[in-house]
């Protein structure tokens, strides 16, 4: 399902009434059902994978046990031959032959299981990838639907309240004006603050006698003018 191109066709068609579904609701349901089905398949495949893995482990244990058994019996046969007891050695050899045929059977089961496991793992991976892909596509449909429904709700709301979307340039002007006003206010407040600060600092310095607090006297001015002339 090439969802994006379907959505494109639907949106570009443009002849849709507000609130009309972009993709047939039934198709969406079928799609959702496909995802659910795939998930069930995966669950079943994982169940069989678990049992096949258990079977393989059992076979492996059996193979090991038989191999040990064969090795032990080979030891017995060698000892019997060393003692010259050919009859006993033959009896043991028969036992070994029987064990070897059992080994072939169990090894076969083990190998079959290994092949089966690989196959199941491959199937599960493929199905999981398919689900991710289907869900991604379903999300595209649902998001598109949701955005269109949301847009319908927003325009209905505008229509009911009698307001309309403001022109972009006007909005920008208003926002900028408010921002400037706020900045001006901040600046004014800052200036006011720093003036107050300077004033209070000056007062403190005067109180402490560090800064001359007297107002300029006529004598001091006269003195300064005289100095200038000389």
């Amino acid at each position: 399902m090439k969802v994006l191109s379907k959505l494109m066709t639907a949106i570009r068609g443009g002849a849709r009434e507000a609130g009309e579904a972009i993709v047939d609701a039934n198709a969406v349901r079928i799609f959702e059902q496909e995802i659910v089905d795939s998930k069930n398949h995966i669950k079943k495949a994982k169940d069989s994978l678990t049992s096949v893995m258990a079977e393989k482990m059992q076979a492996a244990r059996k193979v090991d046990a038989i191999k040990n058994d064969i090795a032990a019996n080979e030891g017995y046969a060698e000892k019997a031959l060393a003692k010259g007891d050919e009859a006993l050695a033959l009896e043991v050899a028969q036992k070994i032959a029987q064990l070897e045929s059992e080994l072939v059977d169990h090894q076969g089961v083990h190998d079959n299981c290994a092949v089966h496991i690989e196959k199941l793992k491959g199937q599960i991976q493929a199905a999981e990838r398919q689900i991710v892909e289907n869900e991604r596509q379903l999300n595209m449909i649902k998001t598109t639907e949701s955005v269109h429904k949301a847009t319908a709700a927003i325009s209905d709301n505008f229509a009911q309240s009698g307001s309309k979307l403001v022109n972009a340039k006007e909005s920008l002007e208003r926002i900028k004006k408010r921002q400037e006003m706020r900045e001006d206010k901040l600046k004014a407040a800052e200036e006011l603050n720093s003036e107050n600060f300077d004033k209070s600092l000056n007062d403190k310095l005067k109180d402490a006698g560090i800064v001359d607090s007297s107002s300029p006297s006529a004598n001091a001015v006269l003195e300064r003018l005289k100095n200038k002339q000389s």
């Binding site: 609130g19 949701s146 949301a150």
Partner: peptide
């Protein structure tokens, strides 16, 4: 909240009154 087939939350940020933001929540985003 603007109610409709899909609920939409209109958020107005102080200082940006002309440009409301509309939130809609779907299953995954």
């Amino acid at each position: 909240i603007i109610q409709g087939e899909v609920d939409v939350l209109q958020v107005v940020v102080e200082g940006f009154e002309e440009l409301p933001v509309y939130l809609s929540i779907t299953e995954n985003q």
